[in-house]
């Protein structure tokens, strides 16, 4: 049987942390770039390394009805195998409980957790992916084990994502390792509304012992967890937040 080309799938690759991870990984891996906006994904692709291959998978992960069929078809059509998976697609809306709608809850959980579970289901399908998947990293949030005002639904979704990660780490061992990264405040399009307010930024900076982070701080950990250097690590949450969540100074 012909050896198929192996790729890393990155969801949410059109901006922010996902874009940085895609560009960084493209230096060593072939990558599949997923996003919903074609122009933004092309902008990511243009910054990727020319040494390796990039393929685009346009799909809004908010719409999961045909996700399994469309993603399976994508793998078949391109005749590829996915060896690594990074789930970066995320939806965050700061909204107090009393203003929370069913739509917000559905969108948050669908993009943050359900899409990741369905994609992993496809990736472990032997017929489709030939047992190629070795490692997955799910981008969670440092809110996962803590709490914050107006972030209850987002926090619940990230805690859920980490729960999915732990159980799958056991279910899919020893062939597949799966871990999550819990970033603190990183300025991206998704968090723009928080960073827009100078007062909030100043207040936040004061609580980060190492200051605020950037997308590269997250990329470095993703690269390590995907690699063979992390061969004995699975089912773990890695908080990358400049010390924010261990800071109990008053």
């Amino acid at each position: 049987m012909d050896e198929k080309k192996k790729f890393v799938l990155i969801t949410g690759a059109s901006s922010g942390i996902g874009r940085k991870i895609a560009i960084g990984l493209s230096a060593t891996y072939n990558v599949v770039l997923n996003g919903r906006n074609f122009e933004k994904i092309i902008a990511t692709k243009e910054k990727c390394s020319e040494i390796n291959e990039q393929i685009i998978f346009i799909k809004d992960l908010c719409d999961i009805n045909e996700l399994e069929e469309q993603f399976s078809e994508f793998i078949r059509e391109n005749n590829i195998e996915i060896s690594h998976f990074v789930h970066c697609a995320g939806y965050m809306k700061m909204v107090p409980l009393k203003m929370t709608t069913v739509e917000t809850i559905n969108t948050t959980f669908t993009i943050n957790i359900i899409s990741a579970a369905l994609i992993l289901k496809i990736l472990i399908n032997r017929k489709l992916n030939n047992a190629a998947l070795k490692s997955a990293v799910l981008i969670s949030s440092n809110i996962s084990n803590f709490g914050a005002k107006a972030l209850s639904i987002y926090g619940a979704s990230k805690a859920g994502l980490d729960g999915l990660m732990r159980s799958l780490a056991i279910e899919l061992a020893p062939k597949i390792r799966i871990n999550s990264i819990l970033p603190g405040a990183v300025k991206t399009e998704m968090t723009e509304s928080i960073f827009d307010n100078n007062e909030t930024v100043q207040r936040m900076e004061a609580t980060y012992p190492l200051g605020l982070g950037n997308t590269n701080d997250i990329y470095e950990m993703v690269e390590f967890l995907l690699s063979e250097k992390a061969r004995w690590i699975t089912g773990q949450q890695f908080t990358i937040d400049g010390g924010r969540t261990i800071n109990i100074s008053g």
Partner: peptide, 11 residues
Amino acid sequence: DSLTILSIIAL
């Protein structure tokens, strides 16, 4: 408070 302001932003 700040939460009420967030509610107004959401509205």
